[in-house]
């Protein structure tokens, strides 16, 4: 049981780390939100499962925390992305796909 719990904790920490690396490496804010949301959602669920295996008497509270994370995390990301789009932040595009238009514009 201890080993299994440690594995879940390790997986959670790893995905959260990947999310952080994504935050640094991604080219624009929308991609960063994507990397952050997904990694943190699965990472925290995995951490919660790990904690649940270590302390089975906490399962009901952990379940509620997990549900709230699943519902609110993507919602918050969508709202931030929507606000960004409305305030005029353009999504980043690969340079070569834009080159012809940019050339013709001068």
């Amino acid at each position: 049981m201890r080993i299994l719990a440690d594995m879940f904790l390790l997986i959670g920490a790893t995905f959260t780390l990947f999310g952080s690396i994504g935050l640094i490496r991604m080219p624009d804010v929308y991609n960063r939100i994507q990397a952050g949301t997904k990694a943190v959602t699965l990472g925290s669920i995995s951490l919660l499962i790990g904690i649940g295996l270590l302390y089975p008497q906490w399962w009901s509270k952990l379940l509620i925390i997990g549900l709230l994370i699943i519902i609110t995390n993507p919602l918050g990301s969508s709202t931030i992305a929507r606000a960004l789009l409305k305030s005029g932040v353009q999504p980043w595009k690969k340079v070569e796909t834009n080159t012809p238009e940019e050339n013709s514009n001068g």
């Binding site: 995905f15 080219p27 990397a35 997904k38 699965l42 595009k93 796909t97």
Partner: peptide, 24 residues
């Protein structure tokens, strides 16, 4: 899909060429 999403995102983030073609 959540698990697939994370594996996919990890692959993109960790690969040196950063293979993304974002669009709305």
């Amino acid at each position: 899909e959540l698990i697939l999403a994370n594996i996919d995102m990890a692959r993109r983030v960790l690969s040196p060429s950063l293979p993304v073609r974002p669009a709305v």
